[in-house]
């Protein structure tokens, strides 16, 4: 199992990771090596086996239906690199066309 360079670039885009050309090359060979190891799973007969997503066997864990105090706004935004008027500030998300 090996990944193409184009696949690595596409996955990096999906994962929102900026990688240099050298990092893309290294990622291509390392991920291919890991996927080769993972391909052992293709040999297992999983016919009729239910997937396990979690192991608690809990169903509908509900908390008390009551109001809880939440963080003060100043505490909630204190760790942000850029705030304004008590809010997080980011560059425009929508681009002009």
């Amino acid at each position: 199992m090996s990944l193409t360079r184009a696949e690595v670039v596409r996955v990096a885009d999906l994962a929102r990771l900026r990688l240099s050309d050298g990092e893309i090359d290294a990622m291509q060979s390392q991920l291919s090596r890991i996927l080769e190891h993972v391909s052992a799973l293709q040999a297992v007969d999983v016919t009729g086996v239910e997937p396990t997503a979690q192991v608690t066997d809990l169903v509908n864990a509900l908390r008390t239906d009551a109001n809880w105090p939440s963080l003060e706004r100043t505490a909630a935004i204190r760790n942000s690199a850029d705030t304004d008027l008590g809010m997080f500030r980011v560059k425009a998300v929508f681009e002009e066309h």
Binding site: A81, V90, V93
Partner: peptide, 20 residues
């Protein structure tokens, strides 16, 4: 955006990809 460091970039998306 909400915590930690942020890298520079021209747009929101560039900042996001650069930070990560």
């Amino acid at each position: 955006v909400r915590y930690g460091n942020r890298s520079a970039g021209e747009s929101y998306r560039e900042q996001l990809d650069a930070t990560r």
